[in-house]
Write a protein that binds this DNA or RNA. Structure first.
Lengths: 180, 180
DNA sequence: AACAACCAGTTGCAAATCGCAATCGGAGGA
DNA sequence: TCCTCCGATTGCGATTTGCAACTGGTTGTT
């Protein structure tokens, strides 16, 4: 698998890699929800991605080196998907894109609290988050996938999300967003 | 025109708006190349977008409020497309995306020099650039389009691009990238 | 041993979108 | 009067999307 390379512009090439409806959403779920198995990405997604599209995107992202795939020793049929260094370095991109979306698009309060914290935390927090992500995705992918080891930064973001979700659940919407 | 709204997540909504092959590339050309007319966007693009797709994207971006369209007083058939405040606020997103692309994708030296300068300049430079963009796209769109007024930051980026292009032109590729 | 639940996908199919090439009617300039 | 330029539009085949149903196999429970 290879990209088209219509030009050597960084923005163009980035859009050839990430310029579709689902790739960055999948990376977001792996990064912030620690979704590491196909089923988790399929069923615990707020947006409801179709299974064939998820399969195609995962295959493509693996081929492009943005995620890696390995067997799960706890279950012969399971695979563990992990972020790689290039996708972990998307943290600043996702942080600024989230900050932009929060300002200009009709976001929900609960789902945007993490974007707010990440923006307020600034580059220092992003670096700490990336260090955590390297531990649970690259250094210890299996323990990271099964929850044996976690991420302090991610725990903080998730706690804030849960708290906001609990506080807003019965007051502003009828839906039931997935717990991370 | 409206987006799908599969969830209220900032990243999801941002990808519903910008998650396609061309939208951000068009905004990049308007922002860094000051392309303000349909023909400029069509013919002075390194990637060679098709005219029907350009027309559809421009219509969609106008409907979404990311760009605006007005008559060009100098020519009854011309239209001037301008960035709006939401798209000007994409500068930090584009800066970090460009920095990521420059590190992880096969960029060309000339086309990535602006991404490098923007990364090195940091948030202070982004703010200065956004201030310039507001002047030539929002406050004075006509003078900004015809070049009567310019942008110091943009002039610096463009000069660096031209210099790098001249220095690398006959040494590392056969193509002839468009001058901005 | 039987059975239900779960695993990572695959298949079929209709609808929408993409990308290219050719073209359009009108306007400006020589 | 041409010729060029203007912002698009049209036709059309190839590709992609999204949904639903399904596959072959494994695991845990009874």
């Amino acid at each position: 698998m290879d990209i088209e390379r219509r030009s050597g512009c960084p923005i163009n090439l980035a859009m050839e890699v990430l310029g579709d409806r689902w790739s960055l959403v999948i990376i977001r779920d792996m990064m912030f929800g620690n979704r590491r198995h196909f089923r988790e990405l399929l069923t615990r997604s707020d947006e409801g991605i179709a299974s064939n599209i998820l399969a195609a995107r995962l295959k493509r992202l693996v081929a492009l080196g943005l995620i890696s795939k390995q067997d799960d020793p706890s279950h012969s049929q399971k695979s563990i998907y992990s972020l790689t260094e290039p996708s972990i370095q998307l943290v600043p991109v996702i942080a600024s894109l989230g900050a932009w979306g929060r300002r200009h698009l009709p976001v929900s309060e609960a789902l945007s609290i993490r974007a707010r914290l990440l923006e307020e935390g600034g580059p220092a927090m992003w670096e700490a988050f990336m260090t955590d992500l390297r531990a649970i995705h690259i250094t210890h992918p299996i323990d990271g996938a099964n929850g044996t080891i976690g991420s302090p930064v991610l725990d903080g973001l998730t706690a804030a999300y849960r708290a906001t979700l609990a506080a807003t659940r019965d007051r502003d919407d009828g839906g039931t967003p997935q717990m991370p």
